[in-house]
């Protein structure tokens, strides 16, 4: 089973951001996707999940060989996709508890019976424990007034409940101090396993000390320009993204005078 992205081109408000992305994530694999600001990492995440503002102009997103392009987000969830948001929105008036319950019920295979409120309480209590989260969390409004760390933990809690086949984690490490980072990373490790493939989008190498990827990809200007093993992330950390830019320029013809880069 695989999440495959083939020659994917995508635009936001008419502007092309993804310019032919190729990537394949197998079940049980952990991939890291790195790249400088504006390289298209978050666009890839949103496009895979089906955000209405992101238009696929060509190419494919396949889960187990079936295209999900054109499917609304909730149908993609049914196919086993999950996106941990970089900036989870807050929804006033919707309790964490009822939200999690709806998410849980809607991510289960068709035909399976939804648990009662009491059964669900047990399910969620177990996951909260796994992530060292307090039960009082459930009695708050969805992401409302959450600290950066709480928001990211809440995303991982949702992943733990929904048990996706493939998870895209969009900068789950951003905005976290070192302790929170470790807790969240441990959470990711506990939730992922041989039945889940994950794509970890990050700027920095620091989370990769805790969540060890087998594959590292570097994105630049809407394409994946380099793929390798863990060593690639260390190389990036050492040399910085300017190294990537330089690396690209060697391949391309030197810019003409007056041409904007």
């Amino acid at each position: 089973m695989k999440l495959e992205i083939k020659e994917l081109h995508a635009s936001v408000e008419g502007k092309e951001i993804l310019k032919g992305v190729n990537l394949s994530v197998g079940q049980g694999e952990t991939h890291a996707l790195m790249g400088p600001n504006g390289s298209g990492k978050s666009t890839l995440a949103y496009t895979v999940m089906g955000h209405p503002k992101y238009q696929v102009t060509s190419g494919e997103i396949l889960i187990d060989g079936e295209s999900v392009v054109g499917l609304p987000p909730d149908k993609r969830v049914k196919k086993g996709l999950f996106l941990a948001f970089q900036y989870p929105v807050s929804v006033q008036g919707v309790s964490m508890f009822s939200f999690l319950r709806a998410a849980y019920n809607n991510s289960r295979p068709a035909g399976s019976e939804s648990p009662t409120i009491f059964e669900f309480k047990e399910v969620v209590a177990e996951k909260l424990k796994l992530l060292n989260m307090d039960e009082s969390f459930l009695n708050r409004y969805l992401n409302e007034g959450f600290s950066g760390g709480e928001k990211k933990k809440a995303e991982i809690l949702q992943m733990a409940l929904m048990q996706p086949k493939f998870a895209v984690l969009d900068e789950t490490d951003s905005g976290l101090d070192i302790d929170a980072l470790r807790v969240v990373a441990e959470g990711i490790n506990k939730v992922s396993g041989p039945q889940m493939g994950s794509l970890l989008i990050t700027h920095y190498q620091r989370i990769l000390k805790y969540v060890r990827p087998q594959f590292v990809h570097v994105m630049f200007e809407g394409r994946i320009i380099e793929s390798g093993g863990e060593e690639l992330s260390r190389l990036l950390e050492e040399k910085g993204y300017t190294w990537i830019r330089g690396y690209r320029e060697e391949e391309q013809a030197p810019p003409q005078v007056g041409q904007t880069l």
């Binding site: 987000p73 969830v77 929804v91 008036g93 919707v94 709806a102 998410a103 809607n106």
Partner: peptide, 24 residues
């Protein structure tokens, strides 16, 4: 989008946001 990305069908997502609006 956030709610549909958690599997809620669009109608249910909208219902949740709208009914939640009264809550505060």
């Amino acid at each position: 989008f956030y709610l549909t990305a958690r599997g809620l069908p669009p109608d249910e997502a909208k219902r949740m946001v709208v009914l939640g609006f009264f809550e505060p």
